[in-house]
């Protein structure tokens, strides 16, 4: 099979970009989308042209590095999978496929289809951690966790931080990512000490990064390769509301055993 690619090309952040059209060579329909790009790039390199820059790493759907908005949908036409597990058999021979980078103010473009998602790292650093005792590993199951909570926490922990939620949202909102990270720790006993502080810190960092607000359109949930649920956004709203009402803890004067 062969396809026509309409790809966003942009040398760097300060140079205006534009779409360029490429004809693919003969493809195996069982190639992944990224392998197809590899083949197209090989052809470009052989012709002495600059290959198309795109993000990729594990290529098995667990690292969250691959991106791309394919024909208007982040991670391509299917539900619940990332670009690396989108295969060319999902397209028809002769299709024109439009490929764009994730677009958001908080995801500034680096080159072609590669954008800078370090804003997610900064949100994570603002509160996406728990206090743990150092030393020897604790006994397994020494802290009882109710099974439904553990399941829900695992659902949230599936988030690979790819940023498709931001890319799909009409407001470029990062709520689904942030809520997944807040919920995955907030649902288990180990995450309780910083639960509200975490919600406040991560949401405030999200606002500071310039992401939009949530209008509950559900686009993020629809494109998420890990099918993270909007329920987690409600959970984040709840925790953040409690944090707002609590306010910042007052410093204790006099110290010690006050």
């Amino acid at each position: 099979m062969k396809v026509t690619l309409k790809v966003w090309r942009q040398k760097n952040r300060n140079t205006p970009g534009s779409f360029k059209t490429y004809e693919s060579p003969e493809l195996n329909e069982n190639m992944s989308f990224l392998e197809m790009l590899d083949v197209v790039n090989e052809q470009l390199a052989n012709r002495g042209e600059e290959p198309i820059a795109f993000d990729h790493d594990c290529r098995e759907g667990i690292c969250g590095t691959c991106s791309l908005v394919i024909d208007g949908k982040p991670h391509g036409p299917h539900k619940g999978i990332a670009t690396c597990q989108t295969y060319m058999r999902s397209f028809k021979n002769g299709d024109e496929i439009v490929v764009e980078p994730f677009r958001a103010k908080a995801f500034p473009l680096i080159k072609d289809l590669v954008c800078d998602r370090k804003s997610f790292d900064r949100i994570q650093q603002a509160g996406g951690f728990i206090t743990v005792r150092t030393g020897a590993a604790p006994d397994a199951n020494s802290i009882p966790v109710p099974k439904p909570d553990a399941d829900l926490a695992m659902d949230a922990a599936q988030c690979i931080g790819c940023g498709a939620c931001v890319a799909a949202c009409k407001n470029a909102s990062a709520m689904l990512f942030v809520s997944a990270k807040i919920s995955h720790l907030g649902l288990v006993p180990q995450g309780q000490p910083e639960r509200y502080k975490r919600a406040k810190a991560m949401v405030d960092q999200m606002d500071a990064e310039g992401f939009g607000a949530c209008t509950v359109t559900g686009s993020c949930e629809a494109v998420c390769p890990k099918e993270i649920s909007l329920d987690f956004i409600a959970r984040m709203n709840r925790d953040y509301g409690v944090a707002l009402l609590k306010g910042d803890p007052k410093a204790i004067k006099g110290g010690g055993a006050g």
Partner: peptide
Amino acid sequence: LNATARPQAYATKGAYGASTASQYM
């Protein structure tokens, strides 16, 4: 805030999976 969060729009039709009402509040 939402308008400034995506300075450059997509060329393709976005809002995948969003209901009409939610996009036109």
